[in-house]
């Protein structure tokens, strides 16, 4: 009981600390310190609650046990990471988003193609494409190729819709201005249409990041070699070694967040002019 009470006290205390820090610290420091403290609070509260309420290991292991597992079996975790994320998800992400960008360029030159692709792309982006995972495993085998294939098919249409919308995001006044400057089509593309499309393109890239992770891991549930994060999660749930499952989840979280953070940095440097980026 003491542990549960102290969890609540800790929560209140650290939240108050965060409010003070958010006011006092400079922008740069607060941006790092505040979320870190918030995350630590969550972890500590969960740890204290699990201990205090005697939650069974089968339902939720203690966060400390997960971290211990992360360090004791890091070699296995690294192999799974390389198989699922570096080979499966990243390959598929690059191919899928790159192909979508190219098709969007084609569509931006042909009004007919744009009118055909945008409704269709919107439609397909809304489909549960992840259902194709068992079919991709049938076609491309158990290796990472089938995972990359499902990631390509999941990322392509959300990215396409964003890129097509982005390349059409200029308005008549801006285009007229470029015409009065006698800008060539290439100049108009490079100086007006591409920069105007960037917020949409980066939005698409951000939306595709979790899709790529989900696709690569789900596909492993339908068949994989004896390595990979989805495989490890499936077999570890079966043998009730839930600390290993959570260690895999932590690895996936770190990888995904790192990539997303990279996208945020790129977004800030490319679309600094957009109202949503103002400080």
């Amino acid at each position: 009981m003491m542990l549960v009470v102290s969890a609540f006290v800790l929560w209140a205390g650290l939240w108050a600390l965060n409010i003070i820090l958010a006011r006092r610290l400079s922008e740069q420091h607060a941006r790092i310190a505040v979320p870190v403290i918030f995350g630590l609070t969550l972890v500590l509260v969960v740890e204290l609650m699990v201990r205090g309420l005697n939650v069974s290991f089968v339902i939720l292991p203690k966060p400390s046990e997960m971290v211990v597992r992360l360090f004791t079996s890091y070699e296995m975790l690294w192999e799974d990471f390389a198989q699922t994320i570096l080979k499966g998800a990243l390959t598929g992400y690059i191919v899928g988003c790159g192909a979508a960008l190219m098709v969007a360029f084609l569509a931006s030159w042909s009004d007919f193609l744009r009118r055909g692709l945008l409704p269709l792309g919107n439609f397909v982006a809304a489909l549960p494409v992840v259902g194709l995972a068992p079919i991709m495993v049938m076609w491309f085998g158990f290796g990472w190729e089938s995972k990359a294939a499902i990631v390509v098919s999941m990322c392509f249409f959300p990215m396409l819709v964003n890129c097509v919308q982005g390349l059409a995001a200029t308005n008549a006044i801006e285009r007229d201005l470029f015409k009065t400057y006698a800008a060539s089509p290439v100049q108009q593309l490079g100086l007006l249409r591409l920069p105007a499309a960037m917020p949409f393109v980066l939005n698409g890239l951000k939306v595709c990041t979790p899709l790529a992770l989900i696709g690569a891991i789900v596909a492993e549930f339908f068949g994989s070699p004896s390595v990979g994060m989805g495989f490890r999660i499936k077999t570890s749930v079966g043998s009730l070694s839930l600390d290993l499952v959570w260690a895999e989840i932590i690895v996936a979280a770190i990888a995904g967040t790192g990539f997303f953070g990279l996208l945020l940095i790129i977004e800030r440097s490319l679309t600094f002019w957009h109202p949503s980026q103002r400080r």
Binding site: I214, I217, M229, I249, A253
Partner: peptide
Amino acid sequence: QTIPIIAIAPM
């Protein structure tokens, strides 16, 4: 979002 839902779904 970077935590694959399929992993924690059984949990």
